[in-house]
Design a binder for these strands. Structure first.
Lengths: 238, 238
DNA sequence: CGTCTGGTTGATCTAGATCAACAGGAGTGG
DNA sequence: CCACTCCTGTTGATCTAGATCAACCAGACG
């Protein structure tokens, strides 16, 4: 974790439109500006640990963070991948509980920290923010259920393709030849943990996808031209 | 579904202390009394279907209801088992969305229905009820994540034992010989769907547990004396 | 008495976990 | 610049939990 912690100007944040604060009135934004702290994190850093008390919220400006959860026997799973615009820690904050999972940096990231005191104040004076978090919680639950179903019903192959499609929707690019491509933001082993598999199986599945000319991989670059063929293979559920 | 629909008196409901309405002031309870409708449902009945618009909440007075979810290819999974005191449908209601899963009666049940209009009114005048549902949503999310982890990491055997322990905590009884017992509220195939397995595998696993003298089964009666031995086998995570 | 549903058993098959080895960078330090 | 280690990813060989398919049994119910 680098030492440079800087004030962050939320009002002019270029990705504010992606965040939970997009509709916050100017007045409150100004207030946040006085407290938000930005910091650069490197791969492997933790924003917080499972079991920690919650001191505030983290808002991801760039990079990727994984929510990882350990069970009693020490096995861990990536529960969720969070990217630019996502706010982390709201559950422990609103639920007055400790963090139920760890937030680990999967790719160098810029993250802003907002202390719980200021959040509480905002929540009091501006109930629509609370409403917003309620909606967040409802959709997170919805998504979690979907992920649960996928884990139970889909093959590794389908899970991997689904993961690629999710990335594609968010970050898909088109190159000059009309070929879709994605730069995978995380390592193979993290992909494996995310889709509930192992690095070995992911590797093999990737190979198979290549021999079938469905997707090409080159390190962290994944490319494909026939989007439809992929969609066909997975019952595209979100 | 039986035809007799009756008014329900929430104020004097014997299980109100288990519900989300336990702390509701008298005044609001009186109001609910005028609208709550009680009805008897039989095995296989549906309270609502996945995709339905949400017209109100359902409060389970007795019996068991399963939240079942179908994916695009028609496979279904039991997402959650709901029992006396549980309120169903709050997610679609608060999220202004359609029901994301079906509520199916797994065991003859008495269920009360409260129209969304009256709920909305209560939510407006009594923000603590909204807060209560937010907390419900947070714990549901928490539980769902735990279930996701279990689905990925535990064997069928461990899942089954875990399921028994959950039932034990809620409904466990002790007979005259100091033997714990539970009456399984649902059918084998529903257990299978709940723990992400098949009826055949559940059956075999049950058999194995019996030969190891860990748990005895007789139809829907499960009994065991050595609780500790069971706890030992599963890293008891909730 | 047939029919149906829920549960149990048996035989088989396969996806994917596990264990083990190895290859290519990327640093690091002499 | 080479030697060393560390780390990620790939491949190979093996093994097993559990799904699947099929038959069958017992009780319920018309």
């Amino acid at each position: 974790m680098s030492d440079e912690t800087a004030r962050h100007n939320c009002t002019d944040c270029p990705i504010r439109h992606l965040t939970d604060w997009q509709n916050l009135p100017k007045k409150l934004l100004k207030k946040m500006d006085r407290y938000a702290l930005r910091r650069q994190y490197e791969l492997g850093d933790k924003l917080y640990h499972q079991g920690d008390k919650c001191h505030g919220l983290f808002c991801i400006r760039s990079g990727f963070v994984g929510l990882r959860r350990y069970d009693v026997s020490g096995r861990s799973s990536l529960i969720k991948l969070a990217g630019p615009g996502d706010t982390l820690g709201y559950r422990a904050l609103l639920g007055h509980s400790t963090h139920s999972n760890s937030a680990e940096i999967l790719k160098a990231s810029e993250v802003c920290y907002i202390d719980r005191a200021i959040i509480s104040e905002i929540l009091q004076n501006h109930p629509s923010v609370g409403e917003r978090f309620l909606q967040r919680c409802l959709t997170d639950l919805e998504r979690m259920e979907a992920a649960y179903l996928r884990a139970k019903n889909l093959t590794t192959r389908e899970q991997l393709l689904h993961f690629l499609m999710i990335l594609h929707e968010q970050f898909g690019q088109l190159d000059e030849n009309g070929c879709h491509y994605i730069v995978l933001p995380i390592a193979r082993k993290d992909i494996a943990e995310l889709i509930g598999s192992t690095p070995e199986s992911v590797s093999r599945t990737i190979k198979k996808l290549e021999t079938e000319h469905l997707v090409q991989f080159e390190g962290r670059l994944a490319s494909f031209e026939n989007l439809g063929a992929i969609i066909d293979q997975i019952g595209m559920i979100h």
